[in-house]
Design a protein around this nucleic acid. Structure first.
Lengths: 200, 200
DNA sequence: GGCTCATGTTGACATCGCCCACATCGCCCG
DNA sequence: CGGGCGATGTGGGCGATGTCAACATGAGCC
């Protein structure tokens, strides 16, 4: 990790982010200390301030990374699902979303846990474009005529997002055991709820 | 608030909890300080330790209260919905859940945000019995024959919970604007997804 | 080769969490 | 009714933290 060669570290920013992530994988919480990260990186207690204005800014950077990773996971799931079966694409998306959350619970929590910005105007930031992907896939599916026709696409998209995000959240917070079987069943339910006819 | 009459405060515990709640309504975060709460309550920096072993224990107490309040809100919604229309009962539950979250975002966040307990065995704590209520209502509905028949009740219950919890979470985290219209539409979607035939 | 600016260091201060011993007071029991 | 005891709050202290300001170092560019 913190293999510095001389006076300068080389890539302290990265090292700090990694240390922070490792820190709250070890504990369950985000209450690490900046000085601790500095020590971990082999640097004095003030070096981090050259890269982040404070703890909150460091967390924001991590959050950003998390959003990126989630979006990437979703895109990867889409290409893995192939372009043909629009219905399978939606399922793949939902599954990837939950799987990311369960696989990176700390990142997911952090992303979820923006400090509320002080009640200001709603930022309306969305988790890494995942919702846009989902909405797009649902539009494909609708165009293909497999989506149930009694609800507008926009509402279905929000419901699908909530369904998936809800399970992810419940599993990450361990209100529901995060086992594979449950995940698969949930995706099937999602399929049954939003699509018409038997699943593939 | 902190109207103490003499050496003793009278109800410091309550005062501290209220102060803590007020504190992260003011800011957006839980990073208040115990000393600050003590000042707010008009006692010295060590008095809180007579009531809570530390900050985490105070937060746990608040969480507990939140769970209680949520369960109460759900029960109230059930009685308000009346005993007859089992389908309306489910809708009322979902609506109450989201409404609670939107109405008490800090409490909801706090409840959501259990420090992960250090990766130990899943506590499987459920948000104030809300899930049990939902499951019960869905069983009523199934017995009445209004629930879609192609999915087991257990799965439907989990999906309904996820759907509702997901929207609550998305709204609290402001990924989705928390307006009334959206809430109502979402409840309608929930109804359409899980029940058969047109809604009342 | 020297300048400059980003990066890291050193020192300092107010504050925090938590530990200690001590003070005060409500309340029970004789 | 009065003494004592346990619960509650006080005061002081220690190590650690976040953040500020001044200084040191060295990489890159001319």
């Amino acid at each position: 990790m913190g293999t510095r060669r001389g006076y300068h570290h080389g890539n302290l920013r990265r090292a700090l982010l990694d240390a922070a992530l490792a820190m709250f994988v070890a504990r369950g919480s985000f209450d690490f200390t900046l000085r601790e990260l500095a020590r971990e990186a082999g640097v004095t207690h003030n070096a981090p301030y050259r890269h982040f204005a404070g703890k909150s800014e460091l967390l924001a950077a991590l959050r950003e990374e998390g959003f990126g990773a989630l979006a990437e996971a979703c895109r990867a799931a889409l290409v893995a699902a192939g372009p043909d079966d629009v219905r399978a694409r939606v399922r793949a998306l939902g599954e990837a979303y939950v799987r990311f959350a369960v696989g990176h619970p700390h990142h997911f929590r952090l992303m979820l846990y923006d400090p509320l910005g002080g009640e200001g105007p709603a930022p309306a930031r969305e988790p890494g474009g995942a919702f846009a992907l989902l909405q797009g896939s649902l539009e494909e599916a609708r165009a293909a005529g497999v989506v149930r026709a009694d609800l507008p696409t926009r509402e279905i998209a929000l419901a699908a997002w909530a369904l998936v995000h809800g399970l992810a959240s419940l599993m990450v917070e361990r209100h529901v055991p995060a086992d594979e079987a449950r995940l698969r069943r949930h995706v099937k339910v999602l399929d049954a709820l939003f699509f018409e006819g038997a699943s593939a």
